[in-house]
Design a protein around this nucleic acid. Sequence first.
DNA 1: CTTGACTCCGTAGTTGACTACGGAAGTAAT
DNA 2: ATTACTTCCGTAGTCAACTACGGAGTCAAG
Lengths: 135, 135
Amino acid sequence: MDAASETLTIGAFGKAAGVNVETIRFYQHKGLLLTPERSYGRIRRYGSADVARVKFVKAAQRLGFSLDEVGQLLKLEDGTHCGEAAELAALRLADVRSKLADLARMETVLSTLVCQCQAQQGRVSCPLIDALHEN
Amino acid sequence: MDAASETLTIGAFGKAAGVNVETIRFYQHKGLLLTPERSYGRIRRYGSADVARVKFVKAAQRLGFSLDEVGQLLKLEDGTHCGEAAELAALRLADVRSKLADLARMETVLSTLVCQCQAQQGRVSCPLIDALHEN
DNA sequence: CTTGACTCCGTAGTTGACTACGGAAGTAAT
DNA sequence: ATTACTTCCGTAGTCAACTACGGAGTCAAG
């Protein structure tokens, strides 16, 4: 938080946060990360708050949030807007569930067809190709 | 199959197959669809085999296959290479299952957090934000 | 035979989350 | 002070599957 603790070069920052330097610059450009000043023409320095912020972003991504959504979440980072945060999470959850349903359908069809194909040894037609044809 | 049945303009073809004209051209460019000749400088004509082919592509996409994979499948379209087709499907299935596992994990975490946030009414911190902060 | 719609074709833009490149300037080590 | 590595910064490229654009040619209706 205090400037004295801003000791990391961007390379060290990236390493500490587990991302590439380019990713950091990309996040800065997207407004997810502040770009610290270059005091007296020196290179920029980063601190542990910055590392925590990137880790927050990565944690949110693992839950399926897009970077734009993460931007919204970062605005609620002080924890005093739980309702709004929960709303974002509920939207994400709905999307996750819809994708889950899609994938479950695919899984059902594919596993059935793979089974049928394995039982098909030596016969003329292919259950998978047939299924795709009868659309 | 016979040229006499190639009566559709690209617009009618698109409508019959349920895709945009641009999509047809895109598929042609990708090698998923043949581009019929322009006899005597006339416009190209398409037939029901073309429509069936596009529907095959769309059916495969609904199972999660990429267009490149669909290209492989189309080469096996005669149904005499069931083993190879099944192999492609098995790879797809593995990928679908891995994505399914990812989404299931997200679903678990998100639904838990949404619940906790709803139970949090009026208290100081936000379970969702907290969870993102603790890595 | 003109008008308006459609086709042709190549190129460029879209979305999301980066990744790569390249020249100039800052920095660390010897 | 020289060398070698970073950093800085902007622009461009990547992937997938399209979607959009624009000018020239073709076609069908009236």
